[in-house]
Each structure stands twice: as structure tokens, then as C-alpha cells.
């Protein structure tokens, strides 16, 4: 494992910890999109089916379990916790799942490395992850008062993918058989989606102002 990959994984982990702490400490999930969290749950379930079939490393297994458990915890809080669920921006979080899920499913059926259930679901999770942040970005745009932790959460999540691109470049140069075009293209699309957010995040940070996205 190279340094970019490890930094990417740690950034991803940190983003989830920030989100868990924010919701738990403030007893509020204001500004957080349940749709994005549920799409991530689908992504992790489809991608990590190999937990049952293929052991890669202890690190790999532990990280997968952490991502699954933390995402389902957040969803549980937002849907059922008696204090937290009241703070969910239900009326603002209106992005339709099917606009993202259906095209990704069709694409995964058409474009994959191998036409087997496991492989198609894995590919589907790669495509879906690339766009799963969209409901969250739309919600942020509609929220007038973005709190720091929510901004940091999205920033960390975007940074994770940017670091993975560096990891792929590194692996491409150092590993003979490392060719993953579907993953690379999806990862680049995913990172591009964040560029606008990054711009306003860094601008607000440099000017010491509160983050807000233009509608």
C-alpha cells in the first residue's frame, strides 16, 4: 500500500468520524442528506459482498466493516433517533434516487469486466459512488447556514477521491498488471463533481468567512 492510498483511506475514515461526531454531539443532522447516506449504504453493501468470499487483509476487512457499520448507524439516527430525526431537512432533501440508481445499474450491466452477479454489483457500486454525493451537494446549496463540520465532512470526502487518483497514478507506474479504466474514469468523474464545492470551501477558508454556496 502506498502513501496516497493510505492517506485517501484515512481521509475517508476521518470524514465519517466527523459526521458521526457532528450528529452525536449536536444531536442534529441539519444539512446532512439522508439520500446520500443511503446511496453510500447501497454502494458499500454491493461492493463489500466479497467480505464473504475473499479475504484480502485484516486492514481491508476491518475498514469495510467500519464503513458499513458507521453508514448504517448514521441512517438509523436520521430515520429513527427520537431527537435527531426531527432535525432532518426532509423537505429540502428531495433528490430522486432513481435518477442516479437506474443509469448506474444500466451502465453496470453494459460496461463491466465480467458478466457475473458479483462483478456487475461491484461495478454498479463503482458507478454509484461517483454520483452519490449529488443529493448532499444539492442540499448544501439550499442550506443558508452551512455549519463548519458539514463543510469539513464534504471536503474530506472529496479529498479522499482526489488522493485515490494519485494512488492510481502511482500504482499504474509501479504495478505491471494494474489497469482499471472503469474505476479510474468513475473516480475522475467523482472528483470533478467536487471541484465547485472545493472552490467555495477554500475561498471561504482563506477569507475567514462562513461557507455558503451560490444557488
Amino acid at each position: 500500500m502506498n502513501v496516497f492510498r493510505l492517506a485517501g483511506d484515512m481521509t475517508h475514515l476521518l470524514s465519517i468520524i466527523v459526521l458521526l461526531l457532528k450528529i452525536n454531539a449536536t444531536r442534529s443532522c441539519r444539512g446532512i442528506s439522508l439520500k446520500t447516506q443511503e446511496l453510500y449504504a447501497v454502494v458499500f453493501v454491493c461492493r463489500y459482498l466479497d467480505l464473504f468470499t475473499n479475504f484480502i487483509s485484516l486492514y481491508n476487512t476491518v475498514m469495510k466493516i467500519i464503513f458499513l457499520v458507521s453508514t448504517f448507524t448514521i441512517i438509523y439516527w436520521m430515520r429513527f433517533h427520537k431527537v435527531i430525526r426531527v432535525t432532518y431537512d426532509r423537505e429540502q432533501d428531495t433528490f430522486r434516487y432513481q435518477f442516479l440508481v437506474l443509469p448506474c445499474l444500466v451502465l453496470a450491466l453494459l460496461l463491466n469486466n465480467e458478466f457475473t452477479a458479483m462483478e456487475v454489483l461491484w461495478t454498479f457500486s463503482i458507478y454509484l459512488e461517483a454520483v452519490a454525493i449529488l443529493p448532499q451537494l444539492v442540499l448544501l446549496q439550499r442550506t443558508n447556514n452551512i455549519d463548519n463540520l458539514t463543510g469539513n465532512y464534504v471536503f474530506l470526502l472529496g479529498s479522499y477521491r482526489a488522493l485515490y487518483i494519485l494512488n492510481w497514478v502511482y500504482r499504474f507506474m509501479t504495478e505491471k498488471h494494474y489497469r482499471q479504466y472503469l474505476v479510474w474514469i468513475s473516480g475522475i468523474v467523482q472528483t470533478i463533481i467536487y471541484i465547485d464545492f472545493f472552490y467555495y470551501y477554500i475561498k471561504s477558508w482563506r477569507n475567514n468567512e462562513k461557507l455558503s454556496l451560490p444557488a
Binding site: 483511506d9 475473499n54 484480502i56 481491508n60 464503513f67 465480467e114 462483478e119 498488471h177 482499471q180
Partner: peptide, 10 residues
């Protein structure tokens, strides 16, 4: 076999 390689990523 190439597609197996990146399955070690998260």
C-alpha cells in the same frame, strides 16, 4: 486477472 488487482481497494 487485471480486474482482480484493484479489489484490494476500498
Amino acid at each position: 486477472d487485471d480486474d482482480r488487482v484493484s479489489k484490494d481497494e476500498l
